[in-house]
């Protein structure tokens, strides 16, 4: 039997040898460094980050995600407009809980507007939206008493939900 014929019959032997050689070279070659850019770390929650804290005493005790935050001018002067969505509870419960949260901070119930999303199925997680009108707040810094676990998050609009006005909407497909 020729060498070629023998190799044809046992083709897996050179293949296995090649794999072993590659593994040996690879184990001495140092580590590769993936970028992770297709799975960015999830930014901190806008309220939990402590960058722009809620009024003292106010605590939200239902599942939510902040959609936008920032100061706006209204009929009664400049104020903070914080928009969040409530999950897994109905509008009445959301209204009751947010009213209680506002009351703990000494704010009136009318500071919250609760709107249930129309036509969401009964098993939906996201149920509706709450628009809060709150006193403006400065970014928590080194001198403030607020606890900021990771100050870098305060510069990330995806965390604070305070988006620069010139950022384009994420709706177009190149």
């Amino acid at each position: 039997m020729t060498v070629i014929a023998r190799l044809r019959r046992r083709w897996y032997l050179p293949l296995a040898a090649l794999v072993v050689v590659l593994l040996l070279i690879g184990s001495r070659a140092g580590r590769a460094e993936p970028t992770g850019s297709y799975r960015p770390l999830l930014p901190a929650d806008a309220i939990a980050s402590g960058c722009y804290p809620l009024p003292t005493g106010m605590r939200i005790d239902f599942p939510y995600q902040v959609r936008s935050d920032g100061d706006v001018d209204g009929p009664h002067g400049r104020h903070r407009r914080l928009v969040l969505q409530y999950d897994e509870i109905d509008a009445a419960t959301a209204q009751r809980r947010i009213t209680a949260a506002l009351r703990r901070a000494g704010l009136p119930a009318r500071a919250a507007t609760v709107t249930a999303y129309p036509r969401v199925p009964s098993d939906a997680l996201v149920r509706g939206e709450i628009v809060l009108t709150l006193p403006s707040v400065a970014r928590a810094g080194a001198h403030s008493s607020a606890h900021v676990p990771d100050p870098a998050q305060c510069d990330d609009p995806f965390s604070t939900k305070r988006f620069p006005p010139d950022w384009p909407p994420s709706t177009s497909y190149a």
Binding site: Y117, K161, F163, P169, S170
Partner: peptide, 8 residues
């Protein structure tokens, strides 16, 4: 359930 975050 509305617009997603901009800038992405």
């Amino acid at each position: 359930y509305g617009m997603c975050d901009p800038g992405s």
